[in-house]
């Protein structure tokens, strides 16, 4: 039996004929409505470019002060890292580790993994780790929470603005740029195409 022409829906296990929609179209599962496949334009090239851009911008976003406050002549600024350290020093190490992972480590590993995978695919280089990198990327994707962190910054700003003067640091602009880049990265990475490509490289 040939398995190549068949596919199964990951959420309802319906056996389907493999579909190959054009760019701009999408394939939905007829039974449960799951988005099976939505091809992306120049997925490999875009992922490669965006991951390089993300790798550059993640450093100022993490190291420069995001926001600060001025109250009665005193001023103080905070970075992503100082929030983690602050929680750690207060004995909230579990929360500190969670914030560290979801706002710094996982976004960074996602960018690095996207870079490694797309670079190998772009130059058609097989690598025995491609499959596990891709798997890690798919697992970690959910745990990088930059967009939620952005919302946290907004809420914190509104709370602070009521009692003190706000200072918007340069790191905030870098952070917003990083947010836009990672969002574009996530939408340009076509997992279906990437797996196909990896399978082809393995067989060659």
């Amino acid at each position: 039996m040939k398995n190549i022409k068949l596919d199964a829906c990951p959420e309802c296990d319906l056996l389907l004929n493999q579909s190959s929609p054009e760019i701009g179209e999408k394939a939905l599962c007829p039974r449960c409505g799951y988005l099976l496949y939505r091809p992306r334009k120049q997925s490999v090239e875009r992922t490669l470019a965006l991951s390089i851009a993300g790798f550059i911008i993640i450093f100022p976003a993490n190291l420069l002060p995001l926001i600060g406050m001025k109250l009665l002549g005193n001023s103080h600024e905070g970075t992503l890292w100082s929030g983690v350290m602050g929680l750690f020093n207060e004995g909230m190490w579990a929360v500190a580790v969670l914030v560290l992972m979801s706002s710094i480590l996982f976004p960074l590993t996602n960018i690095i993994l996207s870079f490694l995978i797309s670079a190998h695919l772009y130059f058609n280089k097989p690598n025995k780790y491609l499959g596990s990198w891709m798997r890690w990327l798919q697992h970690l994707d959910e745990w990088a929470m930059l967009e939620v962190y952005t919302l946290g910054i907004i809420v914190a700003c509104v709370k602070l603005a009521a009692d003190a003067d706000l200072i918007l640091g340069f790191g905030l602009y870098a952070f917003v740029a990083l947010l836009v880049i990672t969002a574009m990265l996530a939408s340009s990475l076509d997992a279906y195409l990437f797996w196909k490509h990896i399978a082809r490289l393995h067989e060659a």
Binding site: L72, G83, S103, V148, A156, D163, A164
Partner: peptide
Amino acid sequence: GRWSMLDIFMISILVAVVDLGGVS
């Protein structure tokens, strides 16, 4: 699911920014 982390992140930012010794 992930959006409930909002409160935790907000606290982390406040802890970092609001640290003016005895003032606040």
